[in-house]
Design a protein around this nucleic acid. Structure first.
Lengths: 240, 240
DNA sequence: GTGTTAGATTGATAATTATCAAACCGCGAA
DNA sequence: TTCGCGGTTTGATAATTATCAATCTAACAC
């Protein structure tokens, strides 16, 4: 079920690298990898949490819905696990997931996961670290939503994408704007206008291409610090 | 430093009850309890995370600030721990904390905490459960902010407070309205108007007293499910 | 009792954000 | 190449939410 070729991709993950080899093998014995095309629904909020998902290749969007509305809660990039919190609490997923690009995903049965971290102390510590990091990401997301207006959120997002790509001044948006808008908690129209309104503050937009013309000025506007913006990534990480 | 009388209050906490007695003792050896008056700042976002806090008595508000603005991120009620995620990641607190009422708090050094869960597997599992629950609470909070308007958030909050007190139709708001407003991500003025606008939908407000006159109608408005509203409490739990 | 004060409410207004409809653009399929 | 289509942009407008200032109220000290 599980291609041995996938193992080397997964092993170095922070979540798995500290655990013992036998335990890793035991866990992966019950896992299976699968390739999904872009745009496929992987799981739905409310479903029982049966599998920890590990994204090896591709890109996945976690989103939440209510009534007709929908909002993206996180973008998962390889290699990372997602949906771990639901597996642990044995409660239904709080978010849905779909592929944004063709993706290879390893599915680890939640029961095995729980059994193994009870036996392997190093793995338990890794799970703790993973969850603590995820929690803090979600706190940052909520803080940003509550303390910044949409224009500031957009500016912060651009700055972070730039940093993520090694402080390059010019880069391509890695996602459709409508998804970025949803992640930032605004409509596409609002994002579009916000982007234009930021031009005097040091950004140049041309389709998907972004050029930060004045990082200092943009940074001042954002008033960002590491208590609001994750130094490691623009979109909140993994977990539930 | 630590009053022995406090131990029985803390021991039954989900976080501590599974750990071995010797480990519990070891942990508490390094802990100390303290009583703080209402309105006192306990810690500030950005501070190094030195202590896990356990609220034994009283009430604590976790909040975040940026520039001049400020928003309530969680209300902690006894007996519960808070600020655990920051202790684990060894990074600065993302939130500040202050007492809302006179509070007795046990401070557990982060270093001891980390040392002990590396040794005590049962404790590690408890920490995992705590973090997973906290993460999910924050996801719910963010979902509510992004998928509901302020009126719906208010309605959901009232319904949840009612449920929390055993589905009593009448109850007292356990907090000042301005704090509830901040938790819900709106201004006090907005909350005030939202509360009045909900009267036709089955709520009666008189100062701090709330009477849910038509739970069915209010519930329909909220469109709440357990994927949005925590069955266990109105305000997101603990952690960071 | 009176005065004081912090919080709550109300009204008027402004700022922000969403909605709706139309036009536009880039890109792959035919 | 042209067509079709999803995504984006733009404009007009509406809804939501914030801000500011002025009461109002309840709690409490004196």
């Amino acid at each position: 079920m599980m291609r041995p070729a996938d193992l080397p991709d997964i092993r170095p993950l922070p979540l798995f690298r500290a655990m013992s080899e036998p335990h890793f093998r035991a866990l992966m014995n019950h896992a299976h990898a699968q390739v999904f095309p872009a745009g496929l629904d992987l799981l739905q909020q409310g479903d029982p949490a049966d599998f920890l998902h590990v994204l090896v290749e591709g890109r996945v969007e976690l989103f939440a819905t209510r009534g007709g509305r929908q909002t993206t809660m996180a973008i998962v990039e390889p290699v990372a696990s997602f949906i771990i919190a639901a597996c642990i609490t044995d409660e239904p997923y709080l978010m849905s997931a779909r592929t944004v690009a063709r993706s290879r995903i390893v599915l680890v049965p939640a029961q095995e996961l729980k059994a193994v971290f009870r036996q392997d102390a190093a793995f338990a510590v890794s799970v703790i670290d993973e969850l603590a990091g995820s929690y803090r990401s979600m706190v940052r997301h909520a803080k940003s939503l509550k303390l910044r207006n949409s224009r500031e959120r957009v500016a912060a997002c651009l700055l972070q994408l730039s940093r993520q790509q090694g402080d390059r001044q010019g880069f391509l948006l890695p996602l459709e704007k409508r998804r970025i808008a949803s992640w930032l908690g605004m409509t596409p129209e609002n994002l579009s206008r916000a982007l234009k309104s930021l031009e005097p503050d040091g950004v140049k937009i041309d389709g998907r291409r972004v050029i930060i013309t004045d990082p200092g000025r943009l940074g001042a506007l954002v008033g960002g610090d590491r208590l609001l913006d994750d130094p490691c990534g623009a979109w909140s990480p993994p977990a539930t």
